[in-house]
């Protein structure tokens, strides 16, 4: 599945390792939350980067003690209609101060790319090749955003206010 980072399709450097398999040496790994929490102490000593897949039904605040040892956090959309990870993403960015890579995985489709980007995801693992290729178009479909979110896009509330305060034409 194509991985998009900052608008470009990139190679996924992380190897996804199941709970049973041994961790390969020297390469970045992405592991499930159960294994990560069980082996968190041991994983601190690992030289290569470690990422975790945090499930959408576990409070995201519980990840706080581990942020320092993580190089990637992946949040899951088991089905695109299940929007819990949007809240997790915003809390990670805005509350817990996570500045590292934040990846959307699962049933990730084109019509949600913009919402994901606005919620703080900077890596998107698309299900469909054609969707990944249309990424740029999908996130630039709108130029107007009503509400502030995690991204840097200015929100209308403030744009309008700016206009009023500067006395621009109505």
């Amino acid at each position: 599945m194509p991985l998009i980072e900052n608008g470009h399709i990139v190679e996924d450097k992380y190897v996804r390792v199941s709970d049973e398999d041994a961790l390969p040496e020297g390469v970045p790994v992405l592991v499930g939350v159960d294994r990560f929490l069980k082996e968190a102490e041991a994983l601190k000593g690992r030289q290569a980067p470690v990422g975790v897949i945090w499930p959408n039904n576990r409070p995201i605040a519980e990840i706080a003690p581990y942020l320092g040892q993580l190089s990637l956090i992946a949040l899951n959309f088991p089905i695109f209609r299940d929007g819990r990870a949007y809240s997790q993403a915003r809390l990670l960015r805005e509350r817990l101060g996570w500045t590292g890579p934040l990846r959307a995985i699962g049933n990730v489709l084109r019509d949600q790319f913009l919402l994901m980007q606005r919620s703080g995801f900077d890596q998107i693992e698309a299900v469909k090749e054609a969707d990944a290729e249309a990424f740029d178009e999908a996130v630039h479909r709108y130029t107007v955003f009503y509400q502030p979110a995690t991204d840097e896009r200015p929100s209308l509330l403030r744009q309008r206010l700016g206009r009023t305060l500067t006395g621009a034409a109505r």
């Binding site: 929007g83 949007y86 809240s87 009503y146 509400q147 979110a149 509330l157």
Partner: peptide, 13 residues
């Protein structure tokens, strides 16, 4: 209305 329109976090409640 403005706040909720295409809200990135709350479109798949």
């Amino acid at each position: 209305r403005q706040y909720s329109t295409l809200h990135p976090e709350f479109t798949y409640l």
